[in-house]
Design a binder for these strands. Structure first.
Length: 284
DNA sequence: CTAAGGACCTGTCGGC
DNA sequence: TGCCGACAGGTCCTTA
Protein backbone atom coordinates (compact mmCIF):
# COMPACT_ATOMS: atom_id res chain seq x y z
CA UNK A 1 0.00 0.00 0.00
CA UNK A 2 1.32 3.34 -0.98
CA UNK A 3 0.25 6.54 0.64
CA UNK A 4 1.21 8.69 -2.25
CA UNK A 5 -1.00 9.80 -5.07
CA UNK A 6 0.63 9.89 -8.43
CA UNK A 7 1.12 12.63 -10.92
CA UNK A 8 0.37 15.46 -8.54
CA UNK A 9 1.84 18.86 -8.81
CA UNK A 10 3.06 20.55 -5.72
CA UNK A 11 2.27 23.97 -4.46
CA UNK A 12 4.10 24.73 -1.37
CA UNK A 13 3.15 27.87 0.48
CA UNK A 14 2.65 27.89 4.22
CA UNK A 15 -0.60 25.90 4.32
CA UNK A 16 0.77 23.22 2.03
CA UNK A 17 4.02 22.94 3.95
CA UNK A 18 2.01 22.71 7.17
CA UNK A 19 -0.08 19.93 5.62
CA UNK A 20 3.07 18.10 4.53
CA UNK A 21 4.49 18.42 8.05
CA UNK A 22 1.38 16.91 9.59
CA UNK A 23 1.33 14.11 7.05
CA UNK A 24 4.98 13.34 7.70
CA UNK A 25 4.54 13.56 11.46
CA UNK A 26 1.82 10.93 11.44
CA UNK A 27 4.02 8.45 9.66
CA UNK A 28 7.57 9.21 10.78
CA UNK A 29 7.60 10.19 14.43
CA UNK A 30 8.98 7.49 16.68
CA UNK A 31 10.58 5.55 13.87
CA UNK A 32 14.31 5.13 13.33
CA UNK A 33 16.09 6.03 10.13
CA UNK A 34 17.91 2.87 9.09
CA UNK A 35 19.35 4.25 5.88
CA UNK A 36 19.39 7.47 3.91
CA UNK A 37 19.79 6.98 0.21
CA UNK A 38 21.13 9.91 -1.83
CA UNK A 39 20.65 9.57 -5.56
CA UNK A 40 22.55 12.71 -6.50
CA UNK A 41 25.00 15.19 -4.99
CA UNK A 42 22.46 17.76 -3.97
CA UNK A 43 19.51 19.91 -4.94
CA UNK A 44 19.80 23.69 -4.92
CA UNK A 45 22.79 23.21 -2.65
CA UNK A 46 25.04 20.17 -2.23
CA UNK A 47 23.95 17.73 0.44
CA UNK A 48 26.03 18.02 3.62
CA UNK A 49 28.93 15.59 3.80
CA UNK A 50 27.74 14.15 7.11
CA UNK A 51 24.28 13.16 5.91
CA UNK A 52 24.97 9.50 6.70
CA UNK A 53 25.37 10.43 10.35
CA UNK A 54 21.60 10.44 10.80
CA UNK A 55 21.35 6.72 10.07
CA UNK A 56 20.23 4.91 13.19
CA UNK A 57 18.65 7.98 14.75
CA UNK A 58 15.06 8.20 15.94
CA UNK A 59 12.69 10.85 14.59
CA UNK A 60 11.44 12.83 17.56
CA UNK A 61 9.25 15.56 16.10
CA UNK A 62 8.45 17.48 12.94
CA UNK A 63 7.93 21.21 12.93
CA UNK A 64 7.51 23.99 10.42
CA UNK A 65 9.28 27.35 10.29
CA UNK A 66 8.15 29.54 7.38
CA UNK A 67 8.15 27.16 4.40
CA UNK A 68 10.86 24.97 5.91
CA UNK A 69 10.17 21.50 7.31
CA UNK A 70 12.29 20.72 10.36
CA UNK A 71 12.65 17.03 11.17
CA UNK A 72 14.04 16.80 14.69
CA UNK A 73 16.16 13.77 15.42
CA UNK A 74 17.91 12.25 18.39
CA UNK A 75 21.40 13.59 18.99
CA UNK A 76 20.19 17.16 18.57
CA UNK A 77 20.33 16.97 14.80
CA UNK A 78 17.71 18.59 12.64
CA UNK A 79 17.03 17.65 9.05
CA UNK A 80 15.94 20.79 7.21
CA UNK A 81 13.82 20.42 4.08
CA UNK A 82 12.48 23.05 1.70
CA UNK A 83 10.17 21.93 -1.11
CA UNK A 84 11.11 24.70 -3.52
CA UNK A 85 8.57 24.86 -6.34
CA UNK A 86 8.07 21.19 -7.12
CA UNK A 87 9.34 19.20 -4.14
CA UNK A 88 7.10 16.62 -2.49
CA UNK A 89 7.25 13.57 -0.28
CA UNK A 90 5.88 10.19 -1.08
CA UNK A 91 5.25 7.82 1.79
CA UNK A 92 5.50 4.19 0.82
CA UNK A 93 5.00 1.14 3.00
CA UNK A 94 7.05 -0.81 0.53
CA UNK A 95 9.40 1.03 -1.77
CA UNK A 96 7.79 1.12 -5.18
CA UNK A 97 9.42 1.57 -8.55
CA UNK A 98 11.88 4.46 -8.34
CA UNK A 99 10.70 7.46 -10.27
CA UNK A 100 12.89 9.74 -12.30
CA UNK A 101 13.20 12.52 -9.74
CA UNK A 102 13.41 10.50 -6.52
CA UNK A 103 16.49 12.21 -5.11
CA UNK A 104 16.50 11.19 -1.45
CA UNK A 105 15.00 8.07 0.11
CA UNK A 106 14.66 7.85 3.88
CA UNK A 107 14.40 4.19 4.85
CA UNK A 108 12.66 3.54 8.18
CA UNK A 109 12.85 0.66 10.62
CA UNK A 110 9.44 -0.70 9.65
CA UNK A 111 10.47 -1.09 5.99
CA UNK A 112 8.52 2.00 5.00
CA UNK A 113 10.14 4.91 3.20
CA UNK A 114 9.74 8.63 2.80
CA UNK A 115 10.85 9.63 -0.68
CA UNK A 116 11.77 13.19 -1.61
CA UNK A 117 10.92 13.85 -5.25
CA UNK A 118 11.59 17.15 -7.01
CA UNK A 119 11.77 17.62 -10.81
CA UNK A 120 13.14 21.16 -10.79
CA UNK A 121 15.44 20.63 -7.84
CA UNK A 122 14.85 24.07 -6.35
CA UNK A 123 14.37 22.35 -3.02
CA UNK A 124 16.84 22.15 -0.17
CA UNK A 125 17.84 19.36 2.18
CA UNK A 126 20.39 20.14 4.87
CA UNK A 127 21.41 19.07 8.34
CA UNK A 128 22.22 21.17 11.37
CA UNK A 129 22.66 20.85 15.12
CA UNK A 130 20.27 22.27 17.65
CA UNK A 131 21.75 25.34 19.22
CA UNK A 132 23.17 26.29 15.88
CA UNK A 133 21.24 28.79 13.85
CA UNK A 134 20.80 27.61 10.33
CA UNK A 135 21.78 30.48 8.01
CA UNK A 136 18.58 30.10 6.00
CA UNK A 137 16.42 30.54 9.10
CA UNK A 138 18.15 33.50 10.71
CA UNK A 139 16.71 36.34 8.67
CA UNK A 140 13.16 35.09 8.43
CA UNK A 141 10.32 37.38 9.49
CA UNK A 142 7.51 36.55 11.92
CA UNK A 143 5.11 33.64 11.57
CA UNK A 144 1.78 35.02 10.34
CA UNK A 145 -0.30 32.73 12.57
CA UNK A 146 1.62 33.51 15.74
CA UNK A 147 1.24 36.23 18.33
CA UNK A 148 4.52 37.67 17.04
CA UNK A 149 2.70 39.31 14.20
CA UNK A 150 -0.26 41.67 13.88
CA UNK A 151 -1.52 44.62 11.88
CA UNK A 152 0.59 47.15 13.76
CA UNK A 153 3.78 45.18 13.23
CA UNK A 154 2.95 44.78 9.56
CA UNK A 155 2.23 48.47 9.23
CA UNK A 156 5.49 49.53 10.81
CA UNK A 157 7.52 47.06 8.75
CA UNK A 158 6.15 48.26 5.41
CA UNK A 159 5.47 51.96 5.91
CA UNK A 160 8.74 53.02 4.25
CA UNK A 161 8.61 50.60 1.36
CA UNK A 162 8.00 51.81 -2.16
CA UNK A 163 7.23 48.45 -3.74
CA UNK A 164 3.72 47.21 -4.42
CA UNK A 165 2.06 45.67 -1.38
CA UNK A 166 1.78 42.36 -3.22
CA UNK A 167 5.55 42.09 -3.61
CA UNK A 168 6.12 43.13 -0.03
CA UNK A 169 3.68 40.53 1.32
CA UNK A 170 5.72 37.85 -0.43
CA UNK A 171 8.94 39.11 1.16
CA UNK A 172 9.92 36.48 3.72
CA UNK A 173 11.74 39.10 5.81
CA UNK A 174 8.46 40.98 6.34
CA UNK A 175 6.29 37.97 7.12
CA UNK A 176 6.89 34.34 6.23
CA UNK A 177 4.83 31.76 4.42
CA UNK A 178 2.94 33.85 1.87
CA UNK A 179 3.72 32.97 -1.74
CA UNK A 180 2.38 33.98 -5.10
CA UNK A 181 -1.05 32.40 -4.80
CA UNK A 182 -2.01 33.47 -1.30
CA UNK A 183 -0.67 36.99 -1.84
CA UNK A 184 -3.37 37.50 -4.47
CA UNK A 185 -6.00 35.71 -2.39
CA UNK A 186 -5.25 37.70 0.77
CA UNK A 187 -5.33 41.06 -0.99
CA UNK A 188 -8.60 40.19 -2.69
CA UNK A 189 -10.20 39.40 0.64
CA UNK A 190 -8.68 42.54 2.11
CA UNK A 191 -10.12 44.70 -0.65
CA UNK A 192 -6.71 46.18 -1.34
CA UNK A 193 -5.14 46.50 -4.76
CA UNK A 194 -1.93 44.52 -5.27
CA UNK A 195 -0.58 47.61 -7.04
CA UNK A 196 -0.91 49.88 -4.01
CA UNK A 197 2.43 51.08 -2.75
CA UNK A 198 3.21 49.50 0.60
CA UNK A 199 3.90 52.96 2.00
CA UNK A 200 0.32 53.90 1.14
CA UNK A 201 -1.16 51.08 3.17
CA UNK A 202 -2.76 52.70 6.20
CA UNK A 203 -2.77 51.26 9.68
CA UNK A 204 -6.42 50.31 9.19
CA UNK A 205 -5.60 48.55 5.95
CA UNK A 206 -2.66 46.74 7.54
CA UNK A 207 -4.97 45.45 10.25
CA UNK A 208 -7.34 44.21 7.59
CA UNK A 209 -4.49 42.47 5.76
CA UNK A 210 -3.43 40.81 8.99
CA UNK A 211 -6.94 39.56 9.70
CA UNK A 212 -7.44 38.28 6.15
CA UNK A 213 -4.03 36.60 6.09
CA UNK A 214 -4.88 34.62 9.19
CA UNK A 215 -8.29 33.67 7.79
CA UNK A 216 -7.05 32.64 4.36
CA UNK A 217 -4.12 30.62 5.67
CA UNK A 218 -6.16 28.89 8.36
CA UNK A 219 -8.92 27.96 5.94
CA UNK A 220 -6.35 26.49 3.58
CA UNK A 221 -4.70 24.52 6.38
CA UNK A 222 -8.09 23.23 7.48
CA UNK A 223 -8.97 22.01 4.02
CA UNK A 224 -5.54 20.36 3.73
CA UNK A 225 -5.98 18.76 7.12
CA UNK A 226 -9.37 17.37 6.25
CA UNK A 227 -7.88 15.57 3.29
CA UNK A 228 -5.23 14.07 5.55
CA UNK A 229 -7.81 12.73 7.95
CA UNK A 230 -9.97 10.77 5.59
CA UNK A 231 -7.36 8.03 5.43
CA UNK A 232 -8.01 7.16 1.85
CA UNK A 233 -5.47 9.60 0.50
CA UNK A 234 -2.97 10.23 3.22
CA UNK A 235 -0.86 12.42 1.06
CA UNK A 236 1.96 14.71 1.91
CA UNK A 237 1.57 16.45 -1.36
CA UNK A 238 -0.72 19.33 -0.50
CA UNK A 239 -2.59 19.24 -3.77
CA UNK A 240 -5.75 17.92 -2.19
CA UNK A 241 -5.80 20.84 0.16
CA UNK A 242 -5.65 23.28 -2.69
CA UNK A 243 -8.28 21.37 -4.59
CA UNK A 244 -10.93 21.38 -1.94
CA UNK A 245 -10.16 24.97 -1.07
CA UNK A 246 -10.46 26.70 -4.43
CA UNK A 247 -9.27 30.18 -5.22
CA UNK A 248 -11.17 33.44 -5.37
CA UNK A 249 -8.91 35.18 -7.87
CA UNK A 250 -5.76 33.18 -8.54
CA UNK A 251 -5.64 31.87 -12.10
CA UNK A 252 -9.10 33.30 -12.79
CA UNK A 253 -8.17 35.89 -15.41
CA UNK A 254 -11.20 36.90 -17.48
CA UNK A 255 -13.63 35.19 -15.12
CA UNK A 256 -16.18 36.97 -13.01
CA UNK A 257 -15.40 38.45 -9.63
CA UNK A 258 -16.88 36.22 -6.95
CA UNK A 259 -18.07 39.15 -4.86
CA UNK A 260 -21.87 39.06 -4.80
CA UNK A 261 -22.69 42.48 -6.16
CA UNK A 262 -19.77 42.75 -8.54
CA UNK A 263 -19.86 41.97 -12.22
CA UNK A 264 -16.24 42.86 -12.90
CA UNK A 265 -13.79 40.57 -14.65
CA UNK A 266 -10.63 39.44 -12.84
CA UNK A 267 -7.51 41.08 -14.26
CA UNK A 268 -4.06 39.59 -14.50
CA UNK A 269 -0.95 41.68 -14.02
CA UNK A 270 2.71 41.06 -13.28
CA UNK A 271 4.68 41.94 -10.15
CA UNK A 272 8.35 41.01 -10.00
CA UNK A 273 7.79 38.69 -12.90
CA UNK A 274 5.04 36.80 -11.09
CA UNK A 275 1.39 36.63 -12.11
CA UNK A 276 -1.04 38.59 -9.99
CA UNK A 277 -4.83 38.50 -10.11
CA UNK A 278 -7.28 41.03 -8.78
CA UNK A 279 -10.63 42.78 -9.17
CA UNK A 280 -10.13 46.45 -10.05
CA UNK A 281 -13.48 47.35 -8.56
CA UNK A 282 -13.36 45.47 -5.25
CA UNK A 283 -9.71 46.18 -4.59
CA UNK A 284 -8.42 49.72 -4.15
C1' DC B 1 19.08 49.77 3.86
C1' DT B 2 15.79 48.93 -0.59
C1' DA B 3 14.63 47.42 -5.35
C1' DA B 4 15.13 45.07 -9.67
C1' DG B 5 16.73 41.47 -12.46
C1' DG B 6 19.14 37.16 -13.38
C1' DA B 7 20.04 32.63 -11.95
C1' DC B 8 18.94 27.99 -10.72
C1' DC B 9 16.06 23.52 -13.16
C1' DT B 10 12.49 20.48 -15.64
C1' DG B 11 7.97 19.84 -17.43
C1' DT B 12 3.88 21.35 -19.81
C1' DC B 13 1.11 23.83 -22.86
C1' DG B 14 -0.24 26.68 -26.82
C1' DG B 15 0.91 28.35 -31.35
C1' DC B 16 2.79 27.65 -35.82
C1' DT C 1 3.81 15.31 -35.32
C1' DG C 2 7.68 18.46 -34.02
C1' DC C 3 9.83 22.59 -32.58
C1' DC C 4 10.01 26.83 -29.75
C1' DG C 5 8.92 30.14 -26.54
C1' DA C 6 6.38 31.24 -22.43
C1' DC C 7 5.35 29.99 -18.08
C1' DA C 8 4.96 27.30 -13.44
C1' DG C 9 3.14 27.64 -6.56
C1' DG C 10 10.57 29.79 -4.41
C1' DT C 11 14.40 32.31 -3.04
C1' DC C 12 19.26 33.50 -3.30
C1' DC C 13 22.67 36.45 -5.37
C1' DT C 14 24.43 40.43 -7.76
C1' DT C 15 24.09 45.07 -9.11
C1' DA C 16 22.54 49.84 -8.80
Amino acid sequence: MSFSTSGCENMPELPEVETVCRGLAGHLIGKHIVKIELNRDGLRFPFPSNMKSIEGLKIKSINRRAKYILIELENNSTLLVHLGMTGRFKLENLRGTPEKHDHVVIHLDDNSTAVYTDPRRFGIIDLFERGQNHPLLIKLGPEPLSSNWDGEILHSSIKNRKSAIKSVLMNQHVVVGIGNIYASEILYRSGISPNRKASNVSSTMANRIHKCTVEVLKEAIDSGGSTLKDGQFVDVNGKLGYFSHGFSVYDREGEMCKNNNCTNIIKKSIHQGRSTYHCTRCQR
